[in-house]
Amino acid sequence: MVPQPPSPLSPLAGRRLLLGVSGSIAAYKSAALTRLLVQAGAEVQVILTEAAAAFVTPLTLGTLSKKPVLTGFLRDAASGQWYNHVELGLWADALLVAPASANTLGQLANGLCPNLLSAVYLSARCPVFLAPAMDLDMYAHPAVTQNLQRLRSFGNHVFDSPSGELASGLVGPGRMLEPEQIVAELATFFGSPSGAVRNC
């Protein structure tokens, strides 16, 4: 089947999106999310944390995004070439972190900068969207609740976690919002008057 080109009326058509993928079992959903964003006409640059690479490979996401996946600051250690987090932050129309693990949320909420993804977040001038994903008791922990509140207070868009069966077998909130719903939320944002103008 030949893939159909995105509708020129799609609010995501031509948008430059950074997709940060952090270490959660929900990282497997980032493949479907990347495919849907590209099908909607977005240009997707994936940033994969070291922990996330245990769940989904750069090869998979690079094939789907049609761009090399960034996994660290260094492009070529021998020559000293590196990926400029400031340029990446300025390039994007939006930064989406999905899944956003408890560890990554803690880094972003407290200004910690141990990897390329958190450095890009601190440098980004564009809207930021976060899709939390973790187990039930982690999601309900006061530290995580406080971090989510703090991130919202910074102006970030934090998706609520739907309730359902988790990888641990527990049932409750903590699941990552489904890729189709995330794409719909982004399309709604960019289709609105506030999102129609590039905010970076």
Results as ranks from 00 to 15, higher is better:
S10D: 13
L9Y: 11
S163T: 13
P68C: 08
N156T: 09
R16Q: 06
H141R: 13
L59H: 13
E180T: 07
L9W: 07
E50W: 09
P132N: 13
P114A: 11
G41I: 03
A13P: 03
L108T: 11
R125Q: 14
L33F: 14
L70R: 00
F159G: 01
A77Q: 15
P58V: 06
T49N: 10
G174P: 00
G41E: 01
A167P: 03
V97R: 05
V97H: 05
E185G: 01
S7V: 06
N115F: 00
A133K: 02
T34G: 04
G14K: 04
F159H: 03
A78Y: 13
E87I: 02
L122M: 15
L17R: 06
E185F: 00
G23D: 07
M1H: 15
G20K: 06
L151F: 03
G14P: 00
L95Q: 04
A131Q: 02
C113L: 07
C113M: 10
A31S: 13
A77P: 02
H141P: 00
S24F: 12
E50R: 14
P132D: 13
A143D: 05
S163R: 15
S10V: 05
G72F: 06
A51S: 15
Q149V: 03
L95F: 10
R16L: 07
P3T: 11
G20W: 02
Q81D: 15
L170Q: 14
T49H: 05
Q81F: 07
E43H: 08
M176R: 01
R75H: 11
L122D: 07
G106H: 04
A184T: 14
S7C: 06
S123D: 13
L88Q: 05
L122T: 10
V38L: 15
A143W: 03
G106S: 10
A54Q: 13
R198K: 14
V21P: 00
P142Q: 13
S65C: 02
N110K: 11
V21M: 04
R150G: 00
S22W: 04
P132W: 11
P99N: 10
S101C: 10
F159W: 13
E178F: 04
I25K: 02
A94T: 01
V2F: 10
R150Q: 05
K66F: 08
K66P: 02
Q181H: 13
L112H: 15
S161G: 04
V21S: 00
G72N: 09
N156A: 12
N115I: 08
A184H: 09
P127H: 09
R198H: 10
S65R: 10
A124D: 06
S192A: 15
P11V: 12
A119V: 07
E178K: 04
T145C: 09
L59I: 14
G41M: 05
A31T: 15
G174Q: 05
P114L: 11
P127T: 08
A40W: 01
V86W: 12
A140C: 12
A13S: 12
G155A: 08
C113W: 07
G172A: 11
L48H: 03
A13V: 08
L9F: 10
G195D: 05
S161L: 08
G89S: 14
